[in-house]
Write a protein that binds this DNA or RNA. Sequence first.
DNA 1: GTCTATATAATGATAGAC
DNA 2: GTCTATCATTATATAGAC
Lengths: 223, 223
Amino acid sequence: MWSAASADGGDLGTAARIRDAAIERFGRDGFTVGVRAIAEDAAVSPGLVVHYYGSKQGLRRACDEHVREVIVAEKRAATTGGTAAGLLAQLADVERFAPVVLYVVRSMREGGDLAAELFEQMVDDAARYLEAGVAAGVIRPSRDPVARARVMAYQSMGSILMWLTMHPEHADPASFGKALRAYIEEVTVPVLEVFTEGLYTDRSLLEEYLLYVPDPPRDGAQD
Amino acid sequence: MWSAASADGGDLGTAARIRDAAIERFGRDGFTVGVRAIAEDAAVSPGLVVHYYGSKQGLRRACDEHVREVIVAEKRAATTGGTAAGLLAQLADVERFAPVVLYVVRSMREGGDLAAELFEQMVDDAARYLEAGVAAGVIRPSRDPVARARVMAYQSMGSILMWLTMHPEHADPASFGKALRAYIEEVTVPVLEVFTEGLYTDRSLLEEYLLYVPDPPRDGAQD
DNA sequence: GTCTATATAATGATAGAC
DNA sequence: GTCTATCATTATATAGAC
């Protein structure tokens, strides 16, 4: 079972070629794109798409499934850092995976099962990563580590999504590597600054709010 | 020129009623929704929608324009704090504006001119707000205040978008107030924590990167 | 395995009656 | 001002030939 990725040079089967064309089109143009465009990209007839996948929805499912598998395989190959930028950068680094990454980005904007599943994975990864950092003494402990990991996943994934939305010219596999480097260059200094030195000069806002909400969301409180 | 908002109880003109129905539908179901559904919500025929707005695209433009006007009026009424949560909370506070806010959220997920314009406004607002905080001594100065404001806009807007994407049941005007309260409750402690105390225990990451990038982004830096 | 041709449904938009 | 009826286009999906 050679589940090779898209830009493999060689000949995947026709079904896989259609699926990869669909992933690329969906990632670039969104899920409203028609089967005609996908069929043309794959150099087959529209009918053949339906023949292999039953329906457009079936094709979507196959794309979701394949993207899921690619990500699992990649994560196994080199364990990621838990941040959205880290995960995406690792995937996009090998430029072959740019279509998959753009498909994930599109899914995250759209919502749905795949997006929810991948996001929960990100939260888990972030929680583990932060916990390891706390244990190593490089990350500050949190009153509510799980909530912090989730919020940081919201922020890091959401930030990339917003950046890409504001730079739509980069919704293309060919320029995605460049896009990611531009993103990282733009955000790294401010992010490191805030995460190292904080934003507020004193603790009044935090302490005021902690008085108002005496116990952290609970579950497993105190750091 | 009474440009009253949607839930006005009374009788806007038919054209305005169609526009408001469109804003609500677009916000709830996305911009792929058909004119038939909008017409039904407004209790008019599909033909009348086109009669007033020429085309679906014309209707979109009218919605964008109205949303823009509502936001300008509201911002004038009570100057916002510059954060996404602040802006949205203020708007959604009066539950009447929930459809407009959801329309904005949808636009931010979709991209386009309105999204770009509103986002740039958010960046400007955030920059002013942060600058005032620095002047007052409650916000730490930044090496690059404009970049920091932009990154915080990415994060705050993106965070809300991600949260709503992961909680699609709240893409409804009726529950939007509740949604926003839930969001704020979930993120406030971790956000205040990180923004007050930072995330890293030491300055090594920041300083290492600053050595690597001696001058702030600079506008024309060659890698 | 793959295509052409077509059925069926939904879309945005038009024309003209009332 | 508003509706009904309809058109033209596009979409997904099917059927059957090669």
